[in-house]
Design a protein around this nucleic acid. Sequence first.
DNA 1: ATTGGCACTCGATACCGCTGAGTGCCAATC
DNA 2: GATTGGCACTCAGCGGTATCGAGTGCCAAT
Lengths: 338, 338
Amino acid sequence: MLDERKLSVLRAIVEDYVTTREPVGSKALAERHALGVSPATIRNDMALLEDEGYITQPHTSAGRVPTDTGYRLFVDRLATIKPLSAAERRAIGTFLEGAVDLDDIVLRTVRLLAQVTGQVAVVQYPSLTRSQVRHVEIVSMSPRRLMVVVISTTGRVEQRVLDVAVALDDETVADLRNRINEAVDGKMLSEMPDAAASVAASMPAEARPAVAAILATMVESLARDGEERVVLSGTANLALFGTDFPGSIQPVLEALEEHVVLLRLLGEATAPSQVSVRIGRELPVEGLSSTSMISATYGATGVGHLGVIGPTRMDYPGTIGAVRAVAQYVGRVVEESS
Amino acid sequence: MLDERKLSVLRAIVEDYVTTREPVGSKALAERHALGVSPATIRNDMALLEDEGYITQPHTSAGRVPTDTGYRLFVDRLATIKPLSAAERRAIGTFLEGAVDLDDIVLRTVRLLAQVTGQVAVVQYPSLTRSQVRHVEIVSMSPRRLMVVVISTTGRVEQRVLDVAVALDDETVADLRNRINEAVDGKMLSEMPDAAASVAASMPAEARPAVAAILATMVESLARDGEERVVLSGTANLALFGTDFPGSIQPVLEALEEHVVLLRLLGEATAPSQVSVRIGRELPVEGLSSTSMISATYGATGVGHLGVIGPTRMDYPGTIGAVRAVAQYVGRVVEESS
DNA sequence: ATTGGCACTCGATACCGCTGAGTGCCAATC
DNA sequence: GATTGGCACTCAGCGGTATCGAGTGCCAAT
């Protein structure tokens, strides 16, 4: 069905269209690429590629434009990822090394990614549930109010203030703190519920109900919200591609404000430690139907996700390379700093 | 120079221009507003208003459009702020009451503001330096690593992990914690440096240098970064006004990404507990030269700022009313929850 | 299977003339 | 002196027409 040459034609179309932003015709193709055949032949191939749904004509008597499926084929089989230059890698490295804490790492990463790719960058904070617990601190602020601080190995610090029904004296609190730390140290945060249960069981009988209640609130509160955070940068880049979006960039901006949606999208990305590419309507979000998302996990344990969002007509090889490189560096930096 | 009627003409021009988005001419003015004079008279007035720099013509034989100075005059002397309807106020109230913690309050506020005004909303977290300290917690995580958690009366919780040069035993830490809490409780965070100094002085002589170093690091670290945070919402609204910006919304989006700049702008706003309006070039930021910013402080002590940013051609009376109302409610909610 | 030739399509661009909202100016009026 | 009606003038916007050219599909020849 699709012989070697037709694939070359598709590749050429995608490449030209991405750079010129204009529908590409048979003649221009024959000139700019050494395909070794005449425009007429290319025309025949193009007609076929169109039948198969890989390219389309905006209107009769215009050149061809890749469809979502066309890009998909291009990404899967035709593109060779552009690795970054040594200089670029070095620049990334030194830029990220300079970070002083986790917030700083994330902020620098997202800006870097937006700048390198020229797209909108999205970086998720290291997921708490996939992090290990380094330390849990429990402090009683007033008789019925506790503050719980959980520090993960990725440097995330989450704190909650809990109002509890039963007053606990300082000794019990200190005891509780020790037992919890012993139980959870080094464990994944997702194992907290189990650990909490066993801690409660180990407490002296008379304190048990109160402690159980506290632990339940604590676990629930940590799981409930604030768990996942995401940071954006480079939305201004969207305006540069204004013409790439049918109508307006408004729906895109709207979608980007829904952090919950972004997190879901990042999470859905398939293989860990692999760059995931989703193109146009493959993204199950209305407002993003004419954008593509290129994302990856970072950190050895796939503790976080990052990615970029841009028009479907983007430089896939370059962007994929950049996302992959940045993910690698960030992973390293996050782990080092832990 | 500007008699009553000329002012009325200016007011009418601003109002019409804001609603129709089109340059307004003398005839249309005479029809839509009961000015009691003929178009010819209005023309004379308009010529004068133009001489004075309040309005301008996009091109000959077009109607007039207000200039920045025109809007300024309108806002200062001609506009009567539209108070929100009772129903709107009630909606705001109930929406904000539902917030569970400070993050939630801020998030709800910024969304609400964006939605009510149809502009880009900006909300600053309660400023730490203007908040009182409710509690300071110091925990030693490892011999040379301390975690400091500061909780303010506005509900903000900031934590820092400090690496210290000298090891401190647990007793000293506990002692330090007590002394610090005693010294700073209820004080403004800006008084921390003084309080820290006196605490250091009160420590046993042998621990003094170490403690002083720690306190210095702590104070410096708290002051340095993370101090001010700002949250945005409604950037998608910008795209709706796309035509209001010369060229593109790109520079505006770019400016909005610079949170530091936004914070400076919010901070510059003049009178506390008063709505501040800055129009077009009055904003000392290149990218925002065709936008206006309407901002206010919230909280009795002016602990935080919020505002909206939109095209200079906006509904000033309505927006001012909305910003004022939201600021009031948020102030109340922040204080209640403390 | 490939290619050159050819007629055809149709978006983009330019040009033209018209229309109408809007202006400035002036002489007449209140 | 302020106001007004009248009038000539300007010019962006709109619709229509003509032209141009990139690009196509098809076909007969290689």
